[in-house]
Design a binder for these strands. Sequence first.
DNA 1: GTCTATATCGGGATAGAC
DNA 2: GTCTATCCCGATATAGAC
Lengths: 230, 230
Amino acid sequence: MARKATPKAEASAQKILDAALELFRERGFDGATMRDIARKAGVATGAAYYYYPSKDALVLAFYQHASAEMQPRIEAALAGARGLEAGLRELIRVKLDYFAPNRPVLRALLRNGADPKHPLSPFSPETGAIRAFDLEWFRRILSDCGFGIPRDLAPHLPDVLWLFQMGVIYFWVTDDSPGQARSYRLLDRAAKAVAVLVRLSALPLMRPVRKVALELIAIVKGPDDTAVPA
Amino acid sequence: MARKATPKAEASAQKILDAALELFRERGFDGATMRDIARKAGVATGAAYYYYPSKDALVLAFYQHASAEMQPRIEAALAGARGLEAGLRELIRVKLDYFAPNRPVLRALLRNGADPKHPLSPFSPETGAIRAFDLEWFRRILSDCGFGIPRDLAPHLPDVLWLFQMGVIYFWVTDDSPGQARSYRLLDRAAKAVAVLVRLSALPLMRPVRKVALELIAIVKGPDDTAVPA
DNA sequence: GTCTATATCGGGATAGAC
DNA sequence: GTCTATCCCGATATAGAC
C-alpha cells in the first residue's frame, strides 16, 4: 500500500491512514466516508484512493502496521511469562490492549471472516503474512512451555491456538462490558482451561480423545496443509 | 415485511424475494443491485423498497421464511433420530441441506455476526424469534436423548449446542469442497464428539471440569440471561 | 393499498487532466 | 502525485396512476 518511494509520499500515506483511524474510532467504519477521511488528511478523495485502492485497504494497512508494531511488545510480554497458560494469556492480552482504541476497525476486519476470498478476511492470502507471524509466536509458546506435547498433536497445536485467539478476539470486539472486562475474564479462565487440556492430552488414557481431536483438526484444516481455511 | 393484506401484494412480495434470491445466488449479495432485483421481478425499484425497506431486509425475510419452512422438516428428521448424536446431526443436516442452494445469502447474514447491533446479526433482537425456535429444538433433543444431564449444566446446554451449530454453519458457508463434503464430515464427527462429551460430563470424576465449563459459560452469556451475546 | 416514474442524495470508486 | 469530474449504487422522497 504505502509507496516508500519518496518521504513526501510516505508522509501523505501516513496522514491519510491517521485521519482514517481517527474517523473510524469516532464514527465507526461505515460512518466514516472517504470524502471525510481525505478532507481531514488535507488531500482530495482521489489522492486517498491513490494510496489506498479501497476503504478496506485502509483497514488492511492498519492491520499490517499493527502487527509489525506489536512484535516487540509481544516479545517483552512473553519474557515475563512462564508456562503455556501465562504465555497464551499474555500474548493475547497484548493484542487486546493494543487494539483497544480501535475496536471498530477490528470489527470491520472480522466481519469479512465469513468469506475467505475477501481480502480482509483473517483467512485470506492478503493477511497470510500476519497469520504466519502469529503462528510463530504460538509455536514458541508451545516449545517454551516446559512440558511434553504429544508428537501427533504438536504440528497442529499452533493452528488450534491461533483459532482460539480468533475466538477470543471475536468475543472481545462484540463485548460491551466496561473496559471489555468480560473479555479479559474470559481470556484468563479460557487460557487456563486450554493449558490444562493440552497438559492432559499427553496422558496415555487420553489417546482415544486425542485421536478424535486429530480427526476433527484434519477435516477443518482440509486437504492442503498450507492454510487454515476456516 | 410481507404485507398479508391482499393476495396480490403477497404475490408481489414473493416475486421480489424470489428474484433477489436468484440474483444473490448468481452474483452474490454485493453483486446484485436493487435495480436489477426490481427489474427481474418486473416491478419498479420503488416497489421493491415498498416491500423491503432495505437490501438487508431481503436477507432477513429469506431467513425468517426459511426458518418457518424448516420446522416440519426438522420434525420429520428428528422422528427418525435416536439419541443426542443423531439428533444433533440430523437437526443441523436439515439446515445445511435446506440452505445449500443459497449459501451466498447465508454468508451475507453471517458476515454481520461481529456486530450484535446489526439487524442481520444472528445475535440481534430482529433474529431473536428464529433463535428461540432453534433453542426449542435443542432442548427437545437433550430431553429426548435418553441419558441424564447434570442439573447445573442442563439449563445452559441448549445455548452451547446452538453456538456449536453456528460454528458448523460458519464453516459450511466458507467450505469450497465439492458439495461441501468436508462440512458434512465435520458435522458427523463433531456431533459424535459433542454427544460423548455431554455423556462424560455426568461422571462424578468430571465435576471439576464441569465447574470450569460452567464458569466459562457464565462469562460468555454475561450478566443478563435473556440472550446469547456472542 | 399498490404500485410507476423520476428526481435526488450521499458514498465508494474510477478516469483523465494537470 | 494530486485534483476535478464523473459514474454507479443504495436509499429516500414525491407526485400521481389505478
